[in-house]
C-alpha cells in the first residue's frame, strides 16, 4: 500500500500517545475507584484528608469554660444551659489568640429566634416562654432588663 494511506494512521497513533502521556501526568496517582466502587467511589483519595483538614471555627462550651469559669457557673444552673456559649458570643475561631475578643450578639433578634410567641402546637416552640414582639417593649434590647445567663423572671 502507498505511504499516504499509512500516514493518517501514524498521526492518529501519535495523538493517542500524546493524550495517554498527558493523562498520566495530569491524573493524580491516587485517583480511581475506592471502597464504594466505580459508581460511587470514583475519586481522588487524598481529597478525603483535605476535607478532614478543613479548619473548624466552632469549639464548644467546655472549651470556653476552661478560662471563663466565673461566667459558666450561673449559666450552667439556668434554663439557658442548653444554649452553647458560641450561639450568642460568636464562633471561637482561634480565640484567645486570634481574635482576641469575640463580638457578642446582644440583638433583640437573637432572643426572638426562640422567644417570639408563635402558635406551633406540634413543636417544641409551643413549650417555650414567648412574647408578642410587636407589643413587648418594641425596639428595646432584651438584655437591658433580662440576664441571658440567668433568665429566671423571679430573680429579675
Amino acid at each position: 500500500m502507498k505511504r499516504h494511506v499509512w500516514r493518517p494512521l501514524f498521526v492518529v497513533l501519535g495523538l493517542v500517545a500524546i493524550i495517554l502521556s498527558a493523562r498520566m501526568i495530569y491524573v493524580p496517582a491516587d485517583f480511581g475507584s475506592q471502597e464504594r466502587g466505580y459508581t460511587f467511589g470514583f475519586h481522588r483519595l487524598s481529597n478525603e484528608q483535605e476535607w478532614q483538614a478543613f479548619p473548624a471555627k466552632f469549639k464548644d462550651s467546655a472549651y470556653c469554660g476552661g478560662c471563663h469559669e466565673d461566667k459558666t457557673g450561673s449559666w450552667e444552673a439556668s434554663a439557658h444551659a442548653a444554649i452553647p456559649c458560641e450561639n450568642c458570643h460568636g464562633a471561637a475561631f482561634g480565640h484567645p489568640d486570634k481574635p482576641e475578643k469575640l463580638g457578642i450578639d446582644r440583638s433583640r433578634g437573637l432572643c426572638l429566634r426562640c422567644h417570639a410567641k408563635l402558635y406551633m402546637p406540634s413543636s417544641g416552640r409551643h413549650d417555650l416562654p414567648g412574647i408578642d414582639a410587636e407589643r413587648h417593649n418594641p425596639g428595646a434590647e432584651c438584655v437591658a432588663c433580662h440576664n441571658p445567663h440567668n433568665p429566671s423572671l423571679e430573680e429579675m
Binding site: N87, R113, C114, L118, M120, S122, S123, G124, R125, L128
Partner: peptide, 10 residues
Amino acid sequence: DTHKCVGCGF
C-alpha cells in the same frame, strides 16, 4: 427530631 425543633435557626 421534628418534635424538638423550635425553628430558632441557630
